[in-house]
Amino acid sequence: MKLEHVVSIDAPRSRVWAGLMDLPAAARCVPGARDIAADGDVVRGTLEVRVGPVRLSLAGSVIVEQRDDIAGTARLRADAADQRIGGALRAFVDLAVTGDGPTQLRVSTDVAILGRIGELGQPLIARQADKVLAGFADCLRKTVAAT
């Protein structure tokens, strides 16, 4: 399942990039994230997602797989598992910043749904992922603007 988001952030490109690459801080920008902690290159934490009566508690990690500071691109890999329902999500997140003050941030996500979570139905999961990413971008915009 592929999701695309482009947001415009009214801040210099270098600040946006620095904000993104501070992974623990960026992770705290994800709506529903808690217990964020850096563990070497890996950032661990839990993402609480609620879809109506269904609650997921996705415990997992994020790591930067590739990073090119000059080009302003990076690939993150996120893995998270839920033990209430059973199942996991795995996402590759490609980040790219273009332009400069305002800076365009493109977030391309490829999410795979593993196990029983899939029984929630793909459209619903896509929508939740959409919401989480939109919230993340919004938070990032504010965080960067504040620095």
Partner: peptide, 13 residues
């Protein structure tokens, strides 16, 4: 199928 996974898991789908 999506990502190798059959999407329907019930007779509503």
């Amino acid at each position: 199928v999506e990502h190798g996974r059959i999407r329907a898991s019930n007779l509503g789908d």
